[in-house]
Amino acid sequence: MQVTIKLFAALRWKLFEEEVREYPEGTTVAQLAADLGIPAPEIGIRLVNGRHCPFEQVLQDGDTVFLMPPIGGG
């Protein structure tokens, strides 16, 4: 299946801004992150099709995944 991946801020600087990749059915967000070589603590926000999701979420063909680093301020 095809998944569109968009990366932001530090993740974008290190890897890429947007790519479409092929993954087997049943791939989770955690597996996608591992495939990209991004350790879990470096991901602060995960969205699938614009909605927050857990690492365990199973992806579907055509999904768009946003991965963002942890953010903070104060």
Binding site: A9, A10, P41, G44, M68, P69, I71
Partner: peptide, 27 residues
């Protein structure tokens, strides 16, 4: 700690400070 890594220099693998918030919130 991952908590402080957010604010550390981007050149050293950190998040680059609060500046990075723009890009995330802009999403």
């Amino acid at each position: 700690s991952p908590g402080s890594a957010r604010f550390q220099p981007a050149s050293q693998g950190g998040g680059g400070g609060t500046w990075a918030n723009i890009e995330v919130l802009e999403a």
